[in-house]
Design a protein around this nucleic acid. Structure first.
Ligand SMILES: [Mn+2]
Ligand SMILES: [Mn+2]
Ligand SMILES: [Zn+2]
Ligand SMILES: [Zn+2]
Lengths: 153, 153
DNA sequence: CCTCCAAATAGAAATAACTTCTATTTATAT
DNA sequence: ATATAAATAGAAGTTATTTCTATTTGGAGG
């Protein structure tokens, strides 16, 4: 927690109760959350807190390097603690929506592709997590109708 | 074009002027378009065509296997002709927004990751296309403020 | 050709996930 | 303690779709 307070200060951000609570949620659960996830969990302690406030804080925490943001295919932004801010990707459970880091990235950024100069890349893996695999077999979560669920196979 | 008409019929879809015009646009330009791209290009010929109609048609064309849909980080869906419907990924120019197919995929779907059973994966590469690299150097396109522009490096 | 009807179309309204705006409060350096 | 830049709340706005409710129309069958 010390570490995060320092990052806040370094970024010129105040240590508000709200922010500390949000960081606390990420530390305690060690997982990725959407703005709404955070918002609903804050309700108990900060009943007068709206979604705009949550977004503002999450973005501030991204800017000062405490959180990373990933855009998922459910069209939502998901936030999680920066894994030392080193390059990594994510795997998502198609049943429960859990997100985990994938630490090693095999992508070769130096390779030329179709005349493009590669600037960045993004890898998203979908799967079924251990917990959901053990649970009673049921249909995989159906995302929004027009939702792109990644190239199968 | 014959080939696409057959796919339409096979999918139980009518050969309407609208649909043939949309397919024509993809064939002529051989690139990926958003619904709005298509809509603005249809205006000359079909002045009374709204965006909902374009979306409906694009989704029908995806369903019958004529188009593929990819969700880009600008939060828009982009559509393109199916490359024989074989597994492929995409590279996007961060300056002009052009999308090209990447035909060979090195991802190992068999590898177990963090206890997950891998179901699918998605790779998105961002870069600068040949045309934009030759053009006068200017700042890279700035996507929406909170936009995820993929892990740099 | 003509008829019919499932499918397609149009336009308005609704939705989801944010983002921006304006006014009011608060953390913190001095 | 004060001053002030930053944070907060709630309302309103935005964007990219999606849904809804009539109103046409492509094309199979006669
Ligand atoms: Mn992560
Ligand atoms: Mn493609
Ligand atoms: Zn799961
Ligand atoms: Zn380009």
């Amino acid at each position: 927690m010390e570490r995060y307070c320092n990052k806040l200060k370094a970024g010129g951000l105040k240590l508000t109760p709200r922010r500390l609570a949000i960081i606390g949620l990420f530390v305690d659960h060690n997982t990725h959350f959407t703005a709404e996830d955070i918002w609903s969990r804050l309700q108990k302690r900060f009943s007068r807190c709206g979604l705009p406030g949550v977004y503002r804080n999450l973005e501030s925490l991204v800017e000062c390097g405490i959180l990373t943001r990933i855009q998922q295919f459910d069209r939502k932004k998901h936030y999680g603690l920066c894994a030392g801010s080193h390059h990594h990707h994510h795997i998502t459970c198609i049943r429960c929506g859990k997100v985990d880091n994938i630490e090693d990235c095999a992508f070769d950024s130096a390779k030329k592709i179709k005349g493009y100069t590669v600037v960045s890349h993004f890898i998203q893996v979908n799967g079924v997590c251990g917990g959901c695999a053990k649970a009673a077999p049921h249909r995989d979560r159906v995302w929004g109708k027009g939702m792109f669920v990644c190239s199968e196979k």
